[in-house]
């Protein structure tokens, strides 16, 4: 299975990555190779195994609805590129 350069550009747009044409070419090859490796798994007969999205064998982990202390606001904003009062401040976005 190959991932075309067009598909790489589409993915890059979705995850907001700026890629050069060289990057697109390189990732197209690498991603295709990764998918090919996964295709080897398709050779295993799984007709008797129930489908699952999780292989660690635990289920239904929940907690009670009890609030616990949050981070101090200075810690929350420690990595903020820019701030105003206690808000994060970013470049303007409007849908």
């Amino acid at each position: 299975m190959t991932i075309s350069r067009e598909e790489v550009r589409h993915l890059a747009l979705l995850v907001r990555l700026g890629l050069s044409e060289d990057d697109v070419l390189r990732f197209s090859g690498q991603l295709s190779h990764i998918l090919e490796s996964f295709e080897i798994l398709n050779e295993v007969d799984t007709s008797h195994v129930a489908p699952t999205a999780n292989s660690i064998g635990i289920e239904s982990v929940m907690r009670e609805d009890e609030p616990k202390p949050c981070l101090a606001v200075e810690d929350v904003l420690a990595n903020a590129p820019s701030r105003e009062n206690t808000f994060f401040k970013v470049r303007p976005v409007l849908e």
Binding site: R63, E66, P67, K68, C70, L71, V73, V76, L77, N85, T86, F87, F88
Partner: peptide, 15 residues
């Protein structure tokens, strides 16, 4: 487990 009473809280204090 952050408190969900966001409306009354100062910005970024329920995080």
């Amino acid at each position: 487990a952050c408190a969900a009473d966001y409306a009354a809280a100062a910005p970024n204090t329920r995080v």
